[in-house]
Nucleic acid binder design. Structure first.
Lengths: 188, 188
DNA sequence: GCAAATTAATGATTTATTCAAG
DNA sequence: CTTGAATAAATCATTAATTTGC
């Protein structure tokens, strides 16, 4: 175990990048199926999947098209950001000319962080990923615990085209992670 | 002292007990030598090393203790942030009621980088780096003045006790610590 | 002199902002 | 315009300094 991340290199075609400039940054274009999956997970409450989950999700998405861990991470990050911004816009609209200068959004009166784990953050997880070859993931998006008549406002089935209006504080990641026990909240 | 705990992810102890696992996430504690190297590089102008460089730096630092790529990345990120904050504070203090207008020293050293990710390919690399502008070595001093040698112990040369209040873009080419030169040829 | 309590530094995460491809 | 990608700012959490009391 003395060994950790080793240079995996192998990025693009070899070549001396002495002065090689590649201003073209092709970005990932998620497939509809991938978006479906991502949205489902996000709406399931897992808005900030830990690394482990990120890898799993990535593998899952990979079945529908090439995708990297970073793409998944970025997606969730942007998703959160975007949702929040939308929310704020709506709030502002509703408030009208109100000055809700209550307090700096630092305490996050409504910001609920249900879990904080290694999520790569802006940090480059680099090659720290296990890179397990376990192709089998959740299997199918199903086989999850069949909730019994639970108010599943975030069902994986589908979603309204306007899902940016939820403020559910009861976040219980209920996706499928059977062994996602890495939810270690900050010790107080 | 010798703790190689540099993990960046959730590392569950093998214990399957219901007892407290180990919610404590030990963070990397850089060795003095490592800090010296990092500071040298930073002061050399490379305030935001691309991935390639990051890996190299990591390998370098590894000689003095366990460290991961993420640690290096974090270090530089925090360093930049702190330096900037200090600068701002000082600036504010000096300015008093001045107008901090003008461009925040868009120093040219920290140019945005572009790099092809080709996520659709097979590059699980996270945040992509561009190409190192100063591919030479960390000793190449750029116009990017950001000398922030807060600690004397890290002072490579008997330089003026100028902590980090260098807001004068006179391009005085600060002394470039070429100490890192030694580490440069540390290709693994 | 040491150890608990407090403070200061600083590594690690999250969020907001920005830039650019489609 | 939408949205993936990247960074900086803000924040949190843990470790090291330091203070304080015995």
């Amino acid at each position: 175990m003395e060994n950790q991340a080793q240079d995996s290199g192998s990025r693009r075609s070899g070549g001396s990048e002495t002065e090689r400039n590649e201003p073209v940054r092709s970005r990932w274009t998620p497939k509809p199926e991938q978006i479906l999956i991502l949205e489902s997970i996000f709406n399931s409450g897992m808005v900030n999947p830990p690394k482990e989950e990120t890898v799993r999700i990535r593998k899952l998405l990979e079945k529908f098209g090439a995708v990297g861990d970073a793409n998944v991470f970025y997606w969730f990050q942007n998703r959160r950001s975007r949702s929040r911004r939308r929310q704020r816009q709506i709030q502002a609209s509703v408030s009208g000319g109100e000055q809700p200068q209550t307090q700096p959004w630092t305490g996050g009166c409504d910001t609920i962080q249900y879990e904080n784990t290694a999520a790569a953050g802006s940090a480059p997880s680099f090659y720290n990923f296990p890179m397990s070859s376990s192709s089998s993931l959740y299997g199918s998006s199903s086989s999850c615990t069949e909730n019994d008549a639970s108010n599943d406002m975030f069902s994986l089935s589908g979603h309204p085209a306007l899902p940016e209006i939820d403020q559910n504080p009861s976040v219980h990641s209920s996706f499928c992670p059977s062994d996602v026990s890495d939810f270690q909240y900050q010790s107080g």
